[in-house]
Write a protein that binds this DNA or RNA. Structure first.
Length: 544
RNA sequence: GCCCCUAUCGUCUAGCGGUUAGGACGGCACCCUUUCAAGGUACAAACAGGGGUUCAACUCCCCUUGGGGGCACCA
Protein backbone atom coordinates (compact mmCIF):
# COMPACT_ATOMS: atom_id res chain seq x y z
CA UNK A 1 0.00 0.00 0.00
CA UNK A 2 2.44 2.60 -1.12
CA UNK A 3 0.71 5.50 -2.82
CA UNK A 4 2.90 7.21 -5.33
CA UNK A 5 4.08 9.70 -2.85
CA UNK A 6 7.20 10.66 -4.67
CA UNK A 7 5.67 11.05 -8.07
CA UNK A 8 5.17 14.75 -7.62
CA UNK A 9 8.77 15.17 -6.66
CA UNK A 10 10.01 13.33 -9.69
CA UNK A 11 8.05 15.52 -12.00
CA UNK A 12 9.88 18.53 -10.76
CA UNK A 13 8.61 21.99 -11.43
CA UNK A 14 9.88 23.51 -14.61
CA UNK A 15 10.01 27.23 -14.90
CA UNK A 16 9.20 27.85 -11.29
CA UNK A 17 9.95 31.36 -10.19
CA UNK A 18 12.50 31.28 -7.43
CA UNK A 19 12.94 34.00 -4.92
CA UNK A 20 16.10 32.59 -3.44
CA UNK A 21 19.03 30.52 -4.49
CA UNK A 22 18.31 26.85 -4.60
CA UNK A 23 19.66 25.05 -1.61
CA UNK A 24 22.06 22.23 -2.27
CA UNK A 25 20.10 19.01 -2.05
CA UNK A 26 21.98 17.44 0.80
CA UNK A 27 21.47 13.74 1.10
CA UNK A 28 20.05 13.01 4.48
CA UNK A 29 21.38 9.69 5.70
CA UNK A 30 18.16 9.06 7.58
CA UNK A 31 16.24 9.10 4.34
CA UNK A 32 17.65 5.79 3.39
CA UNK A 33 16.24 3.91 6.29
CA UNK A 34 12.99 5.75 6.72
CA UNK A 35 11.08 6.26 3.51
CA UNK A 36 7.96 8.28 4.24
CA UNK A 37 5.43 5.95 2.79
CA UNK A 38 6.33 2.96 4.85
CA UNK A 39 5.50 4.04 8.35
CA UNK A 40 3.40 1.55 10.22
CA UNK A 41 0.62 2.36 12.61
CA UNK A 42 1.96 3.06 16.05
CA UNK A 43 5.52 2.76 14.91
CA UNK A 44 6.78 6.23 15.38
CA UNK A 45 10.38 5.21 15.34
CA UNK A 46 10.25 4.90 11.58
CA UNK A 47 9.44 8.57 11.18
CA UNK A 48 11.23 10.24 14.02
CA UNK A 49 12.63 12.78 11.66
CA UNK A 50 11.12 13.46 8.31
CA UNK A 51 13.59 12.30 5.72
CA UNK A 52 14.85 14.92 3.37
CA UNK A 53 13.15 13.91 0.17
CA UNK A 54 13.95 16.80 -2.09
CA UNK A 55 12.33 20.17 -2.67
CA UNK A 56 8.73 20.19 -1.50
CA UNK A 57 5.94 22.09 -3.14
CA UNK A 58 3.46 23.08 -0.48
CA UNK A 59 0.59 25.43 -0.48
CA UNK A 60 -1.39 27.64 1.81
CA UNK A 61 -4.96 27.45 0.56
CA UNK A 62 -7.26 29.71 2.54
CA UNK A 63 -10.85 30.52 1.77
CA UNK A 64 -11.54 34.22 1.41
CA UNK A 65 -14.01 34.21 4.26
CA UNK A 66 -12.31 36.72 6.51
CA UNK A 67 -8.97 37.46 8.07
CA UNK A 68 -6.69 34.56 8.85
CA UNK A 69 -6.45 33.82 12.56
CA UNK A 70 -3.62 32.20 14.44
CA UNK A 71 -4.77 28.67 13.72
CA UNK A 72 -4.69 28.97 9.97
CA UNK A 73 -1.60 31.13 10.12
CA UNK A 74 0.33 28.46 11.96
CA UNK A 75 -0.58 26.22 9.08
CA UNK A 76 0.93 28.76 6.71
CA UNK A 77 4.03 29.14 8.86
CA UNK A 78 4.66 25.42 9.02
CA UNK A 79 4.12 25.01 5.30
CA UNK A 80 6.37 27.95 4.48
CA UNK A 81 9.08 26.71 6.81
CA UNK A 82 8.93 23.28 5.26
CA UNK A 83 9.16 24.66 1.75
CA UNK A 84 12.16 26.78 2.67
CA UNK A 85 13.69 23.91 4.61
CA UNK A 86 13.66 21.68 1.58
CA UNK A 87 14.49 24.41 -0.89
CA UNK A 88 11.09 23.92 -2.47
CA UNK A 89 8.22 26.25 -3.26
CA UNK A 90 5.50 27.82 -1.20
CA UNK A 91 2.32 28.78 -3.01
CA UNK A 92 -0.81 30.62 -2.08
CA UNK A 93 -4.05 29.44 -3.62
CA UNK A 94 -7.41 30.97 -2.95
CA UNK A 95 -10.21 28.48 -2.40
CA UNK A 96 -13.29 30.45 -3.28
CA UNK A 97 -15.64 27.79 -4.50
CA UNK A 98 -18.36 28.87 -2.13
CA UNK A 99 -19.53 32.15 -3.53
CA UNK A 100 -21.98 32.71 -0.71
CA UNK A 101 -19.37 32.70 2.00
CA UNK A 102 -16.97 35.06 0.34
CA UNK A 103 -16.06 38.18 2.29
CA UNK A 104 -14.98 41.06 0.09
CA UNK A 105 -11.45 42.23 0.74
CA UNK A 106 -10.34 39.13 2.53
CA UNK A 107 -7.93 38.00 -0.17
CA UNK A 108 -6.01 41.22 0.21
CA UNK A 109 -6.09 40.88 3.98
CA UNK A 110 -4.81 37.33 3.78
CA UNK A 111 -1.92 38.32 1.54
CA UNK A 112 -1.21 41.30 3.75
CA UNK A 113 -1.01 39.02 6.77
CA UNK A 114 1.48 36.76 5.05
CA UNK A 115 3.54 39.71 3.92
CA UNK A 116 3.60 41.17 7.42
CA UNK A 117 4.80 37.86 8.78
CA UNK A 118 7.49 37.71 6.16
CA UNK A 119 6.18 34.52 4.58
CA UNK A 120 7.04 35.05 0.95
CA UNK A 121 5.45 32.92 -1.71
CA UNK A 122 6.82 31.74 -5.02
CA UNK A 123 3.53 31.37 -6.83
CA UNK A 124 0.16 32.74 -5.92
CA UNK A 125 -3.09 34.45 -6.62
CA UNK A 126 -1.49 37.88 -6.99
CA UNK A 127 1.77 37.01 -8.74
CA UNK A 128 0.72 34.07 -10.86
CA UNK A 129 3.16 31.32 -11.69
CA UNK A 130 3.55 28.36 -14.00
CA UNK A 131 0.27 26.80 -12.94
CA UNK A 132 -1.86 29.92 -12.89
CA UNK A 133 -4.50 30.85 -12.13
CA UNK A 134 -4.25 30.31 -8.37
CA UNK A 135 -7.85 31.19 -7.68
CA UNK A 136 -10.28 28.32 -7.82
CA UNK A 137 -13.20 30.26 -9.22
CA UNK A 138 -11.02 30.81 -12.29
CA UNK A 139 -10.31 27.14 -12.75
CA UNK A 140 -13.81 25.81 -13.32
CA UNK A 141 -13.05 24.15 -16.66
CA UNK A 142 -10.57 21.88 -14.97
CA UNK A 143 -13.11 20.73 -12.42
CA UNK A 144 -15.76 20.24 -15.09
CA UNK A 145 -13.39 18.12 -17.14
CA UNK A 146 -12.50 16.01 -14.13
CA UNK A 147 -16.15 15.58 -13.19
CA UNK A 148 -16.95 14.57 -16.73
CA UNK A 149 -14.21 11.97 -16.70
CA UNK A 150 -15.62 10.53 -13.51
CA UNK A 151 -19.09 10.54 -15.03
CA UNK A 152 -17.80 8.81 -18.13
CA UNK A 153 -15.94 6.18 -16.19
CA UNK A 154 -18.94 5.47 -14.02
CA UNK A 155 -17.25 6.71 -10.86
CA UNK A 156 -19.75 9.51 -10.53
CA UNK A 157 -23.39 10.16 -11.33
CA UNK A 158 -25.77 13.06 -11.57
CA UNK A 159 -28.11 13.48 -8.63
CA UNK A 160 -31.44 15.21 -9.02
CA UNK A 161 -32.59 15.07 -5.42
CA UNK A 162 -33.97 18.35 -4.20
CA UNK A 163 -32.49 19.96 -1.11
CA UNK A 164 -35.83 19.43 0.63
CA UNK A 165 -35.61 15.70 0.16
CA UNK A 166 -32.07 15.66 1.48
CA UNK A 167 -33.12 17.65 4.54
CA UNK A 168 -36.00 15.32 5.20
CA UNK A 169 -33.73 12.32 4.74
CA UNK A 170 -31.22 13.70 7.18
CA UNK A 171 -33.89 14.44 9.76
CA UNK A 172 -35.30 11.00 9.48
CA UNK A 173 -31.89 9.40 9.81
CA UNK A 174 -31.20 11.43 12.90
CA UNK A 175 -34.55 10.54 14.38
CA UNK A 176 -33.77 6.88 13.78
CA UNK A 177 -30.30 7.38 15.26
CA UNK A 178 -28.67 6.33 12.04
CA UNK A 179 -25.65 8.00 10.53
CA UNK A 180 -26.69 10.87 8.32
CA UNK A 181 -25.68 10.60 4.69
CA UNK A 182 -26.99 10.41 1.16
CA UNK A 183 -28.94 7.21 0.53
CA UNK A 184 -27.79 6.81 -3.05
CA UNK A 185 -31.20 7.15 -4.62
CA UNK A 186 -30.02 8.61 -7.91
CA UNK A 187 -27.35 5.98 -8.21
CA UNK A 188 -30.05 3.72 -9.61
CA UNK A 189 -30.93 5.93 -12.56
CA UNK A 190 -29.69 4.42 -15.82
CA UNK A 191 -26.66 6.38 -17.10
CA UNK A 192 -28.33 7.24 -20.41
CA UNK A 193 -31.45 8.57 -18.67
CA UNK A 194 -29.37 10.45 -16.17
CA UNK A 195 -27.30 12.08 -18.88
CA UNK A 196 -30.43 13.11 -20.73
CA UNK A 197 -32.09 14.60 -17.67
CA UNK A 198 -28.85 16.33 -16.72
CA UNK A 199 -29.06 18.38 -19.89
CA UNK A 200 -32.19 20.14 -18.70
CA UNK A 201 -32.65 19.50 -14.99
CA UNK A 202 -30.71 21.09 -12.17
CA UNK A 203 -28.47 18.56 -10.52
CA UNK A 204 -25.29 17.91 -8.63
CA UNK A 205 -22.67 15.32 -9.40
CA UNK A 206 -21.90 12.74 -6.74
CA UNK A 207 -18.96 10.42 -6.44
CA UNK A 208 -19.86 6.76 -6.38
CA UNK A 209 -18.16 5.47 -3.25
CA UNK A 210 -17.61 1.70 -3.29
CA UNK A 211 -20.06 0.05 -0.92
CA UNK A 212 -17.61 -2.62 0.12
CA UNK A 213 -14.08 -2.60 1.41
CA UNK A 214 -12.00 0.03 3.07
CA UNK A 215 -9.83 2.91 1.99
CA UNK A 216 -6.42 3.53 3.47
CA UNK A 217 -4.83 6.93 3.54
CA UNK A 218 -1.21 7.31 4.41
CA UNK A 219 -0.61 10.23 6.75
CA UNK A 220 2.96 11.36 7.23
CA UNK A 221 2.42 11.81 10.95
CA UNK A 222 0.40 8.71 11.79
CA UNK A 223 0.96 6.18 9.10
CA UNK A 224 -2.00 4.45 7.52
CA UNK A 225 -5.48 5.59 8.47
CA UNK A 226 -8.11 3.07 7.48
CA UNK A 227 -11.76 3.92 6.96
CA UNK A 228 -14.53 1.51 6.03
CA UNK A 229 -16.15 2.60 2.78
CA UNK A 230 -19.62 1.95 4.14
CA UNK A 231 -19.15 4.87 6.54
CA UNK A 232 -18.69 7.16 3.55
CA UNK A 233 -21.68 8.31 1.54
CA UNK A 234 -21.85 9.37 -2.10
CA UNK A 235 -20.61 12.89 -1.59
CA UNK A 236 -21.15 15.83 -3.88
CA UNK A 237 -18.21 16.79 -6.07
CA UNK A 238 -19.92 19.32 -8.33
CA UNK A 239 -22.61 21.61 -6.99
CA UNK A 240 -25.68 22.66 -8.91
CA UNK A 241 -24.08 26.03 -9.61
CA UNK A 242 -21.35 24.10 -11.44
CA UNK A 243 -18.77 25.01 -8.81
CA UNK A 244 -16.81 22.10 -7.38
CA UNK A 245 -16.79 21.17 -3.73
CA UNK A 246 -13.49 21.02 -1.88
CA UNK A 247 -13.49 17.25 -2.37
CA UNK A 248 -13.04 17.67 -6.12
CA UNK A 249 -11.10 20.92 -6.20
CA UNK A 250 -8.37 19.62 -3.92
CA UNK A 251 -7.35 16.57 -6.02
CA UNK A 252 -7.63 18.50 -9.27
CA UNK A 253 -5.65 21.54 -8.15
CA UNK A 254 -3.04 19.88 -6.04
CA UNK A 255 -2.31 17.55 -8.90
CA UNK A 256 -2.27 20.35 -11.46
CA UNK A 257 0.00 22.44 -9.27
CA UNK A 258 2.37 19.56 -8.55
CA UNK A 259 1.86 19.80 -4.81
CA UNK A 260 4.00 17.22 -3.05
CA UNK A 261 2.77 17.65 0.52
CA UNK A 262 -0.79 18.48 1.44
CA UNK A 263 -0.65 20.09 4.86
CA UNK A 264 -4.02 20.87 6.39
CA UNK A 265 -5.95 20.80 9.61
CA UNK A 266 -6.89 17.40 10.96
CA UNK A 267 -10.56 18.22 10.59
CA UNK A 268 -9.88 16.93 7.07
CA UNK A 269 -8.69 13.56 8.20
CA UNK A 270 -12.11 11.89 8.21
CA UNK A 271 -12.70 12.91 4.61
CA UNK A 272 -9.20 12.18 3.38
CA UNK A 273 -10.39 8.76 2.11
CA UNK A 274 -12.85 10.53 -0.17
CA UNK A 275 -9.99 12.49 -1.64
CA UNK A 276 -7.86 9.39 -2.00
CA UNK A 277 -10.71 7.72 -3.87
CA UNK A 278 -10.87 10.63 -6.29
CA UNK A 279 -7.13 10.70 -6.84
CA UNK A 280 -7.29 7.00 -7.63
CA UNK A 281 -10.34 7.25 -9.89
CA UNK A 282 -8.74 10.07 -11.83
CA UNK A 283 -5.46 8.20 -12.05
CA UNK A 284 -3.62 10.91 -10.15
CA UNK A 285 -0.73 10.04 -7.86
CA UNK A 286 -1.67 10.82 -4.29
CA UNK A 287 0.25 13.54 -2.47
CA UNK A 288 1.83 13.09 0.94
CA UNK A 289 -0.76 14.04 3.52
CA UNK A 290 0.13 15.86 6.70
CA UNK A 291 -2.87 16.44 8.92
CA UNK A 292 -2.09 18.53 11.92
CA UNK A 293 -4.24 19.37 14.90
CA UNK A 294 -5.77 22.73 15.54
CA UNK A 295 -4.91 25.24 18.25
CA UNK A 296 -7.23 25.33 21.26
CA UNK A 297 -8.45 28.27 23.28
CA UNK A 298 -6.98 28.73 26.78
CA UNK A 299 -9.99 27.27 28.57
CA UNK A 300 -10.15 24.34 26.16
CA UNK A 301 -12.41 24.18 23.15
CA UNK A 302 -12.13 25.96 19.88
CA UNK A 303 -10.31 29.23 19.54
CA UNK A 304 -12.79 32.05 19.15
CA UNK A 305 -12.69 35.80 18.85
CA UNK A 306 -13.12 35.98 22.62
CA UNK A 307 -10.26 33.62 23.24
CA UNK A 308 -7.10 34.50 21.46
CA UNK A 309 -8.29 33.89 17.93
CA UNK A 310 -7.34 37.36 16.95
CA UNK A 311 -6.41 37.86 13.36
CA UNK A 312 -2.76 38.28 12.55
CA UNK A 313 -3.27 41.88 11.63
CA UNK A 314 -4.66 42.55 15.07
CA UNK A 315 -1.49 41.18 16.57
CA UNK A 316 0.37 43.59 14.33
CA UNK A 317 -1.73 46.44 15.68
CA UNK A 318 -1.08 45.40 19.26
CA UNK A 319 2.62 45.74 18.76
CA UNK A 320 3.78 42.18 18.30
CA UNK A 321 6.78 41.51 16.13
CA UNK A 322 6.43 39.18 13.12
CA UNK A 323 9.48 37.20 14.18
CA UNK A 324 8.01 36.61 17.61
CA UNK A 325 4.70 35.46 16.17
CA UNK A 326 6.43 33.11 13.77
CA UNK A 327 8.65 31.65 16.49
CA UNK A 328 5.80 31.30 18.95
CA UNK A 329 3.25 29.79 16.61
CA UNK A 330 5.84 27.43 15.23
CA UNK A 331 6.66 26.02 18.65
CA UNK A 332 3.08 25.65 19.71
CA UNK A 333 2.45 22.13 18.59
CA UNK A 334 6.07 21.36 17.91
CA UNK A 335 9.30 21.40 19.87
CA UNK A 336 13.00 21.24 19.23
CA UNK A 337 14.88 19.85 22.20
CA UNK A 338 15.36 22.39 24.95
CA UNK A 339 15.14 25.37 22.61
CA UNK A 340 12.42 27.96 22.91
CA UNK A 341 13.74 31.08 21.24
CA UNK A 342 14.49 29.92 17.73
CA UNK A 343 15.00 32.69 15.20
CA UNK A 344 13.44 32.38 11.79
CA UNK A 345 16.61 31.40 9.93
CA UNK A 346 17.21 28.70 12.51
CA UNK A 347 13.62 27.48 12.26
CA UNK A 348 14.11 27.00 8.56
CA UNK A 349 16.99 24.71 9.34
CA UNK A 350 15.49 22.69 12.15
CA UNK A 351 11.74 22.69 11.65
CA UNK A 352 10.43 19.25 10.88
CA UNK A 353 6.89 18.97 9.59
CA UNK A 354 6.97 15.26 10.35
CA UNK A 355 7.67 15.80 14.04
CA UNK A 356 4.68 17.93 14.79
CA UNK A 357 2.60 17.06 17.84
CA UNK A 358 -0.58 15.12 17.24
CA UNK A 359 -2.57 16.42 20.17
CA UNK A 360 -4.14 19.84 19.87
CA UNK A 361 -2.14 22.60 21.58
CA UNK A 362 -3.49 25.42 23.68
CA UNK A 363 -2.77 29.00 22.75
CA UNK A 364 -0.59 30.48 25.51
CA UNK A 365 -0.78 34.24 25.32
CA UNK A 366 1.51 34.71 28.33
CA UNK A 367 4.28 32.88 26.60
CA UNK A 368 3.74 34.85 23.42
CA UNK A 369 3.94 38.10 25.36
CA UNK A 370 7.13 37.01 27.04
CA UNK A 371 8.59 35.94 23.74
CA UNK A 372 7.68 39.22 22.11
CA UNK A 373 9.55 40.98 24.90
CA UNK A 374 12.57 38.84 24.19
CA UNK A 375 12.48 39.72 20.50
CA UNK A 376 11.95 43.38 21.27
CA UNK A 377 14.96 43.43 23.57
CA UNK A 378 17.09 41.60 21.05
CA UNK A 379 16.44 44.20 18.39
CA UNK A 380 19.34 46.53 17.54
CA UNK A 381 18.69 49.78 19.35
CA UNK A 382 18.20 51.84 16.21
CA UNK A 383 15.67 49.36 14.91
CA UNK A 384 13.83 49.33 18.22
CA UNK A 385 13.73 53.13 18.13
CA UNK A 386 12.16 52.96 14.67
CA UNK A 387 9.45 50.64 15.90
CA UNK A 388 8.82 52.86 18.88
CA UNK A 389 8.70 55.95 16.69
CA UNK A 390 6.20 54.39 14.32
CA UNK A 391 4.09 53.31 17.25
CA UNK A 392 4.19 56.73 18.90
CA UNK A 393 3.37 58.57 15.70
CA UNK A 394 0.12 56.69 15.93
CA UNK A 395 -0.45 56.59 19.69
CA UNK A 396 0.49 60.09 20.86
CA UNK A 397 -2.22 62.76 21.04
CA UNK A 398 -2.57 65.02 18.03
CA UNK A 399 -1.31 68.02 19.99
CA UNK A 400 2.19 66.61 19.87
CA UNK A 401 3.82 68.03 16.73
CA UNK A 402 4.72 65.61 13.95
CA UNK A 403 6.99 64.26 12.79
CA UNK A 404 8.17 63.26 16.22
CA UNK A 405 11.56 64.35 17.50
CA UNK A 406 13.81 61.40 16.68
CA UNK A 407 16.55 62.57 19.03
CA UNK A 408 14.13 62.41 21.93
CA UNK A 409 13.04 58.91 20.98
CA UNK A 410 16.63 57.83 20.60
CA UNK A 411 17.30 59.22 24.07
CA UNK A 412 14.59 57.29 25.89
CA UNK A 413 14.67 54.09 23.86
CA UNK A 414 17.45 52.53 25.96
CA UNK A 415 15.51 53.47 29.09
CA UNK A 416 12.41 51.50 28.11
CA UNK A 417 13.75 48.62 26.08
CA UNK A 418 13.69 46.29 29.07
CA UNK A 419 10.34 47.51 30.21
CA UNK A 420 8.06 46.60 27.33
CA UNK A 421 6.73 43.34 26.01
CA UNK A 422 4.42 44.91 23.46
CA UNK A 423 4.86 48.11 21.53
CA UNK A 424 1.46 49.12 22.83
CA UNK A 425 3.00 49.44 26.29
CA UNK A 426 5.36 52.18 25.19
CA UNK A 427 2.98 55.10 25.40
CA UNK A 428 2.20 55.08 29.14
CA UNK A 429 5.89 54.75 29.86
CA UNK A 430 6.97 57.79 27.91
CA UNK A 431 4.02 60.11 27.63
CA UNK A 432 5.32 62.44 30.34
CA UNK A 433 8.23 63.26 28.06
CA UNK A 434 5.74 64.81 25.70
CA UNK A 435 3.48 66.54 28.21
CA UNK A 436 3.69 70.34 28.16
CA UNK A 437 2.55 70.37 31.71
CA UNK A 438 2.59 67.57 34.27
CA UNK A 439 0.08 68.42 36.97
CA UNK A 440 1.07 67.53 40.49
CA UNK A 441 -0.77 64.43 41.58
CA UNK A 442 -2.99 64.64 44.68
CA UNK A 443 -1.09 64.69 47.97
CA UNK A 444 -2.31 61.22 48.95
CA UNK A 445 -0.35 59.74 46.12
CA UNK A 446 2.84 61.08 47.67
CA UNK A 447 1.94 60.12 51.19
CA UNK A 448 2.26 56.38 51.04
CA UNK A 449 4.53 53.96 52.87
CA UNK A 450 7.16 55.91 54.78
CA UNK A 451 5.39 59.20 54.07
CA UNK A 452 1.99 58.20 55.31
CA UNK A 453 0.56 61.07 57.34
CA UNK A 454 3.79 63.04 57.05
CA UNK A 455 3.00 65.72 54.48
CA UNK A 456 5.20 68.31 56.16
CA UNK A 457 8.20 65.94 56.21
CA UNK A 458 7.65 65.07 52.59
CA UNK A 459 7.50 68.71 51.63
CA UNK A 460 10.65 69.33 53.62
CA UNK A 461 12.44 66.51 51.90
CA UNK A 462 11.49 67.83 48.50
CA UNK A 463 12.83 71.19 49.64
CA UNK A 464 16.13 69.57 50.48
CA UNK A 465 16.21 67.91 47.08
CA UNK A 466 15.53 71.20 45.34
CA UNK A 467 18.28 72.87 47.27
CA UNK A 468 20.69 70.06 46.41
CA UNK A 469 19.95 70.58 42.75
CA UNK A 470 21.06 74.19 42.83
CA UNK A 471 23.84 74.72 40.33
CA UNK A 472 24.11 71.05 39.43
CA UNK A 473 25.01 70.16 35.87
CA UNK A 474 21.85 68.61 34.40
CA UNK A 475 23.19 65.20 33.53
CA UNK A 476 21.95 61.93 34.92
CA UNK A 477 25.28 61.26 36.64
CA UNK A 478 25.44 64.65 38.32
CA UNK A 479 21.78 64.47 39.30
CA UNK A 480 22.28 61.11 40.90
CA UNK A 481 25.32 62.24 42.86
CA UNK A 482 23.53 65.35 44.09
CA UNK A 483 20.30 63.61 45.04
CA UNK A 484 21.98 60.66 46.70
CA UNK A 485 24.02 63.10 48.67
CA UNK A 486 20.87 64.95 49.67
CA UNK A 487 19.19 61.76 50.85
CA UNK A 488 22.21 60.74 52.84
CA UNK A 489 22.62 64.18 54.35
CA UNK A 490 18.96 64.19 55.43
CA UNK A 491 19.13 60.66 56.79
CA UNK A 492 16.60 59.44 54.26
CA UNK A 493 16.47 56.14 52.48
CA UNK A 494 17.19 56.91 48.86
CA UNK A 495 14.08 55.11 47.74
CA UNK A 496 11.91 57.26 49.94
CA UNK A 497 13.31 60.49 48.58
CA UNK A 498 13.43 59.33 44.99
CA UNK A 499 9.84 58.20 45.00
CA UNK A 500 8.72 61.72 45.90
CA UNK A 501 10.86 63.19 43.15
CA UNK A 502 9.69 60.64 40.64
CA UNK A 503 6.07 61.36 41.29
CA UNK A 504 6.61 65.13 41.25
CA UNK A 505 8.58 65.15 37.99
CA UNK A 506 6.75 62.51 36.00
CA UNK A 507 3.36 62.41 37.64
CA UNK A 508 3.69 58.64 37.86
CA UNK A 509 4.87 56.09 40.36
CA UNK A 510 6.20 53.75 37.69
CA UNK A 511 8.63 55.26 35.21
CA UNK A 512 11.87 54.65 33.39
CA UNK A 513 14.98 55.30 35.52
CA UNK A 514 14.64 58.62 37.31
CA UNK A 515 17.87 60.50 36.64
CA UNK A 516 18.05 59.67 32.97
CA UNK A 517 14.44 60.74 32.68
CA UNK A 518 15.09 64.02 34.48
CA UNK A 519 18.04 64.70 32.22
CA UNK A 520 15.80 64.25 29.20
CA UNK A 521 12.97 66.36 30.61
CA UNK A 522 15.37 69.21 31.35
CA UNK A 523 16.15 71.42 34.32
CA UNK A 524 13.45 74.06 34.11
CA UNK A 525 10.42 71.74 33.87
CA UNK A 526 11.84 69.45 36.55
CA UNK A 527 12.45 72.25 39.02
CA UNK A 528 9.06 73.78 38.32
CA UNK A 529 7.35 70.47 38.99
CA UNK A 530 9.37 69.90 42.16
CA UNK A 531 8.42 73.32 43.47
CA UNK A 532 4.79 72.72 42.64
CA UNK A 533 4.82 69.40 44.47
CA UNK A 534 6.56 70.89 47.47
CA UNK A 535 3.95 73.64 47.66
CA UNK A 536 1.11 71.17 47.32
CA UNK A 537 2.46 69.02 50.11
CA UNK A 538 2.95 72.03 52.33
CA UNK A 539 -0.62 73.11 51.98
CA UNK A 540 -1.72 69.54 52.55
CA UNK A 541 0.27 69.60 55.78
CA UNK A 542 -1.40 72.82 56.88
CA UNK A 543 -4.83 71.51 55.99
CA UNK A 544 -4.33 68.35 57.99
C1' G B 1 -26.03 7.92 17.17
C1' C B 2 -21.91 6.41 13.90
C1' C B 3 -16.83 7.32 12.34
C1' C B 4 -11.76 9.34 12.75
C1' C B 5 -7.65 11.40 15.57
C1' U B 6 -5.36 11.99 20.23
C1' A B 7 -3.18 11.69 25.79
C1' U B 8 4.31 13.73 29.92
C1' C B 9 4.19 19.49 35.11
C1' G B 10 -1.45 24.67 35.04
C1' U B 11 0.42 25.71 29.57
C1' C B 12 3.95 24.59 25.18
C1' U B 13 7.15 20.65 24.85
C1' A B 14 12.01 16.96 25.28
C1' G B 15 12.02 11.82 25.81
C1' C B 16 12.36 6.62 20.80
C1' G B 17 12.62 -0.09 26.36
C1' G B 18 17.04 0.74 31.41
C1' U B 19 16.95 8.89 32.84
C1' U B 20 17.58 11.84 39.72
C1' A B 21 11.61 12.22 33.58
C1' G B 22 14.92 17.65 30.84
C1' G B 23 13.75 22.77 29.05
C1' A B 24 10.50 27.11 28.41
C1' C B 25 6.10 30.19 29.94
C1' G B 26 3.42 30.97 34.23
C1' G B 27 3.76 30.47 39.91
C1' C B 28 6.51 31.00 44.48
C1' A B 29 11.02 32.59 47.35
C1' C B 30 15.51 35.03 47.46
C1' C B 31 19.51 38.18 45.23
C1' C B 32 20.40 42.73 42.48
C1' U B 33 17.91 47.48 42.75
C1' U B 34 15.68 54.79 42.85
C1' U B 35 9.95 52.68 41.00
C1' C B 36 8.73 49.19 37.27
C1' A B 37 11.16 46.00 34.43
C1' A B 38 15.26 43.21 32.85
C1' G B 39 18.86 39.81 34.93
C1' G B 40 20.60 35.89 38.48
C1' U B 41 19.58 31.77 41.94
C1' A B 42 16.41 28.24 44.32
C1' C B 43 11.79 25.71 44.94
C1' A B 44 6.90 23.55 43.86
C1' A B 45 4.78 21.19 39.62
C1' A B 46 3.66 15.73 35.02
C1' C B 47 4.02 10.23 32.64
C1' A B 48 -4.95 9.75 33.04
C1' G B 49 -6.61 4.56 34.81
C1' G B 50 -6.57 -0.75 33.99
C1' G B 51 -4.79 -4.89 31.55
C1' G B 52 -1.07 -7.21 28.65
C1' U B 53 4.22 -7.92 25.93
C1' U B 54 9.22 -7.83 28.13
C1' C B 55 14.50 -9.39 32.53
C1' A B 56 12.84 -4.20 32.25
C1' A B 57 7.90 0.10 30.32
C1' C B 58 6.61 7.28 30.08
C1' U B 59 8.20 4.66 25.78
C1' C B 60 5.19 -1.29 22.29
C1' C B 61 -0.19 -3.60 22.12
C1' C B 62 -5.43 -3.64 23.93
C1' C B 63 -9.50 -1.61 26.79
C1' U B 64 -11.64 2.37 29.70
C1' U B 65 -11.73 7.42 30.60
C1' G B 66 -10.61 12.37 29.11
C1' G B 67 -9.71 15.87 25.00
C1' G B 68 -10.29 17.23 19.73
C1' G B 69 -12.59 16.60 15.04
C1' G B 70 -15.99 14.69 11.18
C1' C B 71 -20.82 12.86 9.40
C1' A B 72 -23.63 19.95 3.98
C1' C B 73 -24.95 21.55 -3.07
C1' C B 74 -18.84 24.95 3.71
C1' A B 75 -14.12 24.85 3.35
Amino acid sequence: MAPHVHAGLERGAPGVRRTRAARPARRDPRAARAPCGDARAGDRSARVTTPFAGPARVRFAPSPTGEPHVGSIRQAIWAWLYARHTGGQFLVRIEDTDQSREVPGSIERILESLRWLGLDWDEGADIGGPYAPYVQSQRLEGYHAAAQRLLDSGDAYPCFCAPERLDALRKQQQAERRSPGYDGMCRAIAPADAAARARSEPHVVRFKVPREGATTVEDLLRGPVVVENRTLDDFVILKSDRFPTYHLAHPVDDTAMRITHVTRGDEWLPSAPRHALIFDALGYPRPIYVHNPIILAPGGGKLSKRHGAKSVLEFADDGYLPDAIVNFLCITGWGHGDDTIIPRHELIKVFDIGAVSLAPATFDIDKLNWMNGVYLRNLPEAELAEHIAARLEHDLPIEVPRPLDRALIAAFTPLIRERVQLLAEVLPLVEFFYAMDVPTPPAEEFLTRRWKGRAADAAGSLGIAIAALDGVAWTSEALEVALRGAAEGAGLAVGDLFSLIRLAVTGKAVTPPLFESMAIVGAAPCLARLHAAEAALRSAAVGA
